[in-house]
Simulated scan of single mutants.
Amino acid sequence: MDEQKTPEQPGRPNLFQVIGSVLAAGFGVQSEKNRQRDFAGGSAGTFIVVGIVATILFVITLYMLVKLVIGAASA
């Protein structure tokens, strides 16, 4: 049988949707529709891994930005 996605039965979110959901949740602007899609069809492991990677990238970006500002201030 061929399963068709209906509005009541959302499919699994793809990688870009997971990344978007993690970023939106990090900023606190996740839509109700996307939240329901994530809880209905998403894998917790995928969201955890993407969240950890996003956090690491955020910390590295902040570290580099601080180093840049401190370097510019001392020059």
Rank of each mutant, 00 (worst) to 15 (best):
A24S: 15
G45F: 04
I70E: 10
S43A: 11
A72R: 10
L57G: 13
A73F: 13
S31P: 02
T46E: 15
V49Q: 12
Q4R: 15
Q4S: 10
F27I: 07
A73I: 12
G51K: 01
R12P: 02
G71Y: 05
G71S: 08
G28F: 05
S43F: 08
G41F: 03
K5N: 07
F27G: 03
S74D: 08
G45T: 04
L15V: 15
A25D: 12
A40I: 04
Q17P: 01
M64F: 12
V29S: 09
A40M: 09
A24D: 15
E8C: 05
A54D: 09
K33P: 00
T55N: 09
G51E: 03
G51W: 00
L68V: 03
Q17C: 03
N14F: 05
V29W: 01
Q9V: 13
R37Y: 03
R37H: 14
N34A: 13
G11C: 06
L23K: 09
S31M: 08
Q30S: 12
F39P: 01
I48W: 02
I56P: 01
G11H: 08
A54N: 07
Q4A: 07
A40H: 09
E3P: 11
V50S: 05
V66I: 13
T61W: 14
G42N: 00
F58A: 12
I60Q: 06
V53H: 06
F16G: 06
N14A: 10
R35N: 13
I70M: 11
